[in-house]
Write a protein that binds this DNA or RNA. Structure first.
Lengths: 196, 196
DNA sequence: GTCTATATCTCGATAGAC
DNA sequence: GTCTATCGAGATATAGAC
């Protein structure tokens, strides 16, 4: 039972355009009219697909892009010989992306979360779900590599913390040096925890 | 040569109120009329002290509060027996503050930096100066404790990265667990680098 | 599902009296 | 230095034809 082709395409265009705008401008810095223009949709279409307006659209952007980032990072890590190397590769790839995009935010979720955490509880909860999901996903990879559950959870949490902080630093300084050197620390932390 | 009492008080009230609003709502989420109300000033006074409007006021908030945070952290670290313990104390204090304030942002600079990095180059540069200053300040403390210059710079950079990432996590999850456990990792990293 | 038109509100900024 | 009044622009959201 395939969805109507044109509807799906429009909804997707709206989500994609909004994600891209959020990466450059955050949540409060992005307006609906910018989304209308960038997605080549109309105000009517946006409210058709997201009757709750900007906040419902934002929640969906957080969920969809959050799941995408989590999946991407897991794939990068699992395709390496071990998770320490894999995490290192993930930092390298994100750093390369920042260089290539002139330091547009690789992932807007941390920015939006910090923007709305005290003022928009529904959106904060969505962001918290996404971030908790990242930690659990990473922890599962580390458990699969033979690290015990508690240590895996701590390392996974530290990894997400470092990635988020690294984005703040890189984007502000327009320099991936601190980001990559933080990635090297995380690589070592994971390597030290690996069995054998 | 003391400044006019009333003027200085008003200017300070504007800066303080704006910093507080930024901690809850970020840059784009805070309006001039909110600043007027919270500072008990008037539009005219704001433009009198900050002729460049919101952006000039924001730049000054970044500089003043950024210097304040840097000084505070240095004092906390230097008042401990060694910088590893001191850094641990700084994480504990920040965590305590987040609990007490229901997770209002302890420091809005990272949020604002990420909000404006792609859209407001003058403000991005101010934020970069502030952040670079933190790293240099922390590195100097580590050098004083006997760690070589290159290693001190890396550890200082990693510390700021971890603090910023920890703020994102704590504020989003409303849980200081990940923040404190990241602080424990940083404490260990510094302890391992200390001579003797 | 998509479109245009528009309602209602608030934004940042300015003017000019005091 | 501080005040009130207000500007023009642009915000989110809605209405109703198609």
């Amino acid at each position: 039972m395939a969805p109507t082709t044109s509807s799906a395409a429009t909804r997707d265009r709206i989500l994609t355009a909004t994600t891209e705008l959020f990466r450059r401008q955050g949540y409060n810095g992005t307006t609906l009219s910018q989304i209308v223009e960038a997605s080549a949709a109309t105000t009517g279409s946006i409210y058709h697909f997201f009757p709750g307006g900007k906040d419902e659209l934002t929640a969906e952007v957080l969920r969809v892009s959050g799941a995408g980032y989590g999946e991407l990072v897991e794939i990068v890590i699992r395709s390496a010989l071990d998770p320490a190397t894999g995490m290192h590769n993930a930092f390298e790839a994100a750093g390369q992306l920042m260089i290539e995009t002139d330091f547009i935010d690789p992932c807007p979720i941390g920015t939006i979360a910090r923007e709305v955490a005290s003022t928009n509880e529904p959106l904060r909860l969505v962001a918290a779900d996404v971030m908790q999901g990242w930690v659990e996903r990473l922890a599962a990879v580390l458990v699969d590599a033979g690290i015990d559950a508690a240590q895996s959870e701590r390392l996974a949490s530290m990894s997400v913390t470092t990635i988020e902080g690294g984005f703040v630093m890189a984007r502000t300084l327009k320099d991936i040096g601190p980001f990559l050197s933080a990635g090297e620390v995380v690589r070592q932390l994971i390597a030290d925890a690996l069995p054998e």
